[in-house]
């Protein structure tokens, strides 16, 4: 950690710390977006085997589903490609009227 510019909340740095601590880690990445998606392509959410997570792939509306999928990915080791529309009713309830769609790639670290 030599630069202040790299935030402590950086998911990829956190993933490395978790890995060093012996935790199983899944990495979810926004790889495509359509419309006004809340998080840009390249954004990460990392999840450990207990369901702890850091980062985000949306404004909060699809994180729950991604975390559930990540549990399967951690168990199987097989990456998955997920697609979400984030303009549904749930999205409205949590305050997101973005009307976008996102594609999220979920993989196991190691």
């Amino acid at each position: 950690m030599t630069q202040q510019t790299t935030s402590e909340l950086d998911p990829l740095l956190t993933a490395e710390h978790w890995m060093s601590a012996g935790r199983d880690v899944a990495i979810a990445t926004v790889i495509e977006t359509w419309g006004s998606a809340p998080r840009p392509v390249g954004s990460h959410l990392i999840i450990d085997e207990k369901g702890n997570f850091e980062g985000s792939v949306s404004g909060g509306c699809v994180e729950g589903s991604v975390i559930a999928e990540a549990m399967d990915v951690l168990a199987s080791g097989e990456p998955r490609l997920l697609e979400f529309g984030v303009a549904d009713e749930t999205a409205w309830q949590v305050g997101l009227s973005c009307g976008g769609r996102i594609k999220v790639y979920v993989e196991r670290l190691g």
Binding site: M1, Q3, T6, L12, L13, A15, E16, G110
Partner: peptide, 12 residues
């Protein structure tokens, strides 16, 4: 894991 370490090293 090696890729993650290498990537983070470059970013740091």
């Amino acid at each position: 894991p090696y890729c993650l370490k290498k990537l983070n090293a470059e970013r740091r």
